[in-house]
């Protein structure tokens, strides 16, 4: 389960970033004065010291990971875990070079991305408004919540047989499973955000003349946005988990299918390549959501 871990900590662009962030806070820079380029650079450096440090440590940590991997595989270490058949980083690199010139591999990747796009977008389009409405109108909450609570614990993978029966094509059932995976985290987090809206802000809006609809648009929605984006980030992670599982079980294309097929065809380097591709795609999509979040919530990025 590599992708949910990546997704659950989107702020840790690198595995060690959180350690670095816990370090000393960079000194506050003095108030602005007309300055030379050199002084500007210096100030930029001071302000971003923490981030630079995190990046540096992150790169070193990744390199160390590669080195350990390399050593374990070249010496074919057997110590409880058997590295005898595990491909080395160089072998994976070689199969990567081959793969990027192979339209079939690209098609696998693109198809997975398309499924994520449709499944996740649908989940967001349904989940966010539903959460907002459920948070605001008790009756809707009372009607929908019990059903959601019963369906929520069912892992998306457990839906595979049912999905195959429900949907006419394989493609649709995979998208459906991706949708299910991301839907509940999005719904639950949106609801949570709605329940945390500060009542004082609602009162403030009311005595400035805001009516129900404006309060919804101007207070409840923006106040819930941080949690909505948490839901989207978590949902994206679960979407990948569900997608890969679905592809491995019922797919014909897709990066999950590619990884599984590599195992059946005894192409061990391709297994690792598939896994890394999934990791990178998962990370990339959660970074996209983070970026979108910063665009939509400029008040939180200072």
């Amino acid at each position: 389960m590599s992708s949910p871990a990546l997704v659950r900590h989107p702020e840790d662009g690198m595995p060690t970033a959180s350690i670095a962030e816990a370090g000393p806070v960079p000194a506050v820079t003095p108030a602005a004065a007309p300055t030379s380029f050199g002084a500007l650079m210096l100030r930029w450096y001071r302000l971003n010291q923490g981030r630079l440090r995190a990046t540096a440590i992150g790169i070193i940590s990744l390199l160390a990971f590669l080195l350990v991997w390399h050593l374990l595989t070249t010496y074919r270490v057997v110590f409880f875990v058997r590295f005898t058949n595990v491909p080395s980083p160089l072998a994976v690199y070689a199969s990567f070079v081959k793969a990027i010139h192979d339209p079939k591999f690209l098609m696998h990747v693109l198809l997975s991305c398309r499924r994520i796009f449709f499944g996740f977008s649908l989940a967001a389009i349904v989940g966010v408004p539903l959460g907002l409405i459920m948070g605001r109108f008790k009756l809707v909450h009372e009607i929908i919540f019990p059903v959601a609570e019963v369906l929520r614990p069912i892992p998306a993978i457990a839906w595979v047989p049912m999905a195959i029966m429900l949907w006419p094509t394989n493609e649709q059932s995979i998208v459906y499973i991706t949708f299910l995976g991301s839907f509940f985290p999005i719904l639950v987090n949106t609801l949570h955000g709605m329940s945390l809206v500060d009542p004082v802000l609602v009162r403030a809006a009311q005595c400035l003349g805001a009516r129900e609809r404006s309060i919804f648009r101007e207070v409840y929605f923006p106040a819930s946005l941080p949690h909505i984006f948490t839901g989207l980030t978590v949902g994206m992670g679960v979407a990948w988990v569900s997608l890969i599982a679905a592809e491995m079980i019922s797919g014909q294309y897709g990066i999950g299918y590619f990884t599984w097929e590599a195992y059946s065809l005894v192409q061990y380097a391709d297994i690792a390549l598939g896994m890394i591709a999934i990791g990178v795609l998962g990370l990339g999509s959660s970074l996209l959501i983070r970026g979108a979040g910063q665009l939509v919530m400029p008040w939180r990025s200072t």
Binding site: R203, A205, G209, P222
Partner: peptide, 16 residues
């Protein structure tokens, strides 16, 4: 209503 403006003890500006 907007006829009666109110200032609260807690800070109540819209953060967004």
């Amino acid at each position: 209503s907007a006829e009666r403006g109110m200032v609260f003890q807690q800070y109540s500006l819209f953060p967004w």
